[in-house]
Design a protein around this nucleic acid. Sequence first.
DNA 1: CATGAATGAGCCTTCATTCAT
DNA 2: CATGAATGAAGGCTCATTCAT
Lengths: 222, 222, 222, 222
Amino acid sequence: MNDKKTASKTRNAIIETAGRIFAEEGYSKATVRDICRQAGVNIAAINYHFGDKKGLYLSVLKHYQEISLKTYPPDLGINETQQPEEKLHTYIRSFLTRIMDDGHPAWFGRLMAREFTQPSWALDILVKETIRPSFQLLTEIVGAILGKSTKERVVRLCSMSIVGQCLYFMHSHPVITRLYPGESFGRKQIDELTDHITGFSLRGLLEGKNKNYSEVKKCKKR
Amino acid sequence: MNDKKTASKTRNAIIETAGRIFAEEGYSKATVRDICRQAGVNIAAINYHFGDKKGLYLSVLKHYQEISLKTYPPDLGINETQQPEEKLHTYIRSFLTRIMDDGHPAWFGRLMAREFTQPSWALDILVKETIRPSFQLLTEIVGAILGKSTKERVVRLCSMSIVGQCLYFMHSHPVITRLYPGESFGRKQIDELTDHITGFSLRGLLEGKNKNYSEVKKCKKR
Amino acid sequence: MNDKKTASKTRNAIIETAGRIFAEEGYSKATVRDICRQAGVNIAAINYHFGDKKGLYLSVLKHYQEISLKTYPPDLGINETQQPEEKLHTYIRSFLTRIMDDGHPAWFGRLMAREFTQPSWALDILVKETIRPSFQLLTEIVGAILGKSTKERVVRLCSMSIVGQCLYFMHSHPVITRLYPGESFGRKQIDELTDHITGFSLRGLLEGKNKNYSEVKKCKKR
Amino acid sequence: MNDKKTASKTRNAIIETAGRIFAEEGYSKATVRDICRQAGVNIAAINYHFGDKKGLYLSVLKHYQEISLKTYPPDLGINETQQPEEKLHTYIRSFLTRIMDDGHPAWFGRLMAREFTQPSWALDILVKETIRPSFQLLTEIVGAILGKSTKERVVRLCSMSIVGQCLYFMHSHPVITRLYPGESFGRKQIDELTDHITGFSLRGLLEGKNKNYSEVKKCKKR
DNA sequence: CATGAATGAGCCTTCATTCAT
DNA sequence: CATGAATGAAGGCTCATTCAT
């Protein structure tokens, strides 16, 4: 495996094309032949630059992970002077943008989505370098909103509830377009979603805090 | 394509094994050779019973869809005497159980998860016969909770927020086990999750109702 | 191999259908599954009635050979009172009709055409039971026209010239329709061809008789 | 489909072997596995060089067509100073040689024979590039012999009579060797056949010209 | 560095055939 | 006699990979 980040023209062309095709077709359906043909390079170049198909996939993943982290760091726009609620709003916007924006980050989102349902060795890297730091930041924000006395488990579950809402639009995109054919996800919809998820989640977090449904139920029965 | 539901031993063995392997490997990585070997039948049996690999996949999907719908109908345990909030609680429990319970329904969940990120012609069938009816029921419950005057779009977004939370545990299962190695999803955890998601969502729904974040923000700033 | 000529309904249906399909598709491209499906019988019937595909093919060939010989015997319409020239005319008409007429004999002609270019063990039977007697009759007619003193080899070559003309329309049918798209071979064209071939051949036979081209050439040069 | 005429060793070996096997077995019975084994190359080479079996067949056909046309052009040895009768003699010799000579042209003849009875898309190419030009030349010669006032249809039928005689030895080769086991077709026999067919045909053409059999019959009856 | 050519493994599919009822 | 189910062999094709230049 060649880890040199040399700005080789061939190497770049392959990475670029492979990113698109892996995102479109998935790892196993994508063929190195197709990638090379579309990239306009010889088929043996993959072996030379990346060792094999797996090596290419790894390189592509790391490349877009890097770009994604640079373009949309988890703490994008967040600063310490903000209220936790504002931080959450910023976090969600950043999260959604990273997932759904056009261009490379969107490819990266697609690649990640595939890794979720078809985890490979690559998922370990993604979890370590991208997912865990991001989730860590979220739990801190949620923790701050819920208050220090909140149990870690509650923080975790609430964080998952927030992430789940965001990811829904990444994972279930094909379903959503089938359920609601007119639906699309441009800049405007991202804004709308950001506001909706933030609002929904803040209410979910703020009121009752560590009351779960069982307790709510009891209250209601009264 | 042989649509007969004949209880052929060979046919059943194939469906059984194929379901597991498709769920484990995905459609393109799964090989009919492997399926047949593990099912202990001759490879030509697939052609005889299902026409081809696609036909087998379709049959597997329909088979488990049927079982899943029979075992966990969307309206499982819901009756008209319940309050909407109770209905939601029941709905979420049923949803989570269907997704995460051990055995066949779990395979079906895995198969669906794959269809989400790698939609094929099969997704159209799933949306029509399984997903849309289920989502329709949820929007009705959410609509009842939010009140009749609520805009359709708000109902839709809130429903998605709820579904998103539930699906997170289906889609992101490999991630969760990597983030929190000890985590598991047995009966007990499903109960916990059901209560959490219901509580979180009811608060998200009840308070402020059609107020979105922008308005919340303004309120806060005051 | 079951040689019983029992008028089994199943057996007849298979023979009938197989004849058409073998003629249309050729032996190797024709499949027993297709034959059985179109004949409306179970696939195992072929094994039962004919042993295997080869046995079926042989039975079909013999069946149509029999019909063909009964419908158009080589000496059809020829009687001893006719002049040899008239006999030739009758022979050619019979030959062309057998080859190009619609219905079963035409299928048989197609099957024979295939055997010519893709000879199998079946060709030996055809040569023995159908082709040789027919060719024998022709050589007798040609011999009578050429005179008793003609060398056997000359008779043979002339007979081949006549047969060659007739077969051309069997073998080269696909080519003729491509060269002359309007061309068709109905009853009327068979009459025309019969007259043409007979005239052409009689002139070829009668004049100069055993003079071959080399001698003609010498004559011409004088 | 790779149309490059690169003199690749592998590519040549495949063409060579495939020509023989296609001629021997026919398109559908010939297997790419067998061709590759006999050619001593890997099976994937066919995909690389010719795309698929169809592409290989086309390439084989075009290759031998090219060789055949180069070695035995339709107008081989014909020059404008010749009398039409001499042209016909030359044409027939060339035709027979092309069909029956040992080596590649003979394979090509066998391949063409198969296309005649089992026409595929390849026949269209053969008709366009090989058959039609050749037939066109023959009709011109025949037309010159018959005279300008002769109807086009008579010219056509007479040309077919000549072609039919020549092709007989291509198509019916397996039959001839069964009828007359001693028969062979070497250089000497080709000479003999050329003289016979030319003489037979010239007589068929010259005498009576546009008289058909019906008229001949009437004459005779007088 | 880059290339066209070649490889071997493996995939899906189809076939004629046979088994058990 | 007849059937649906099952079998094993083989076919065409595609893939990632490597070789020799």
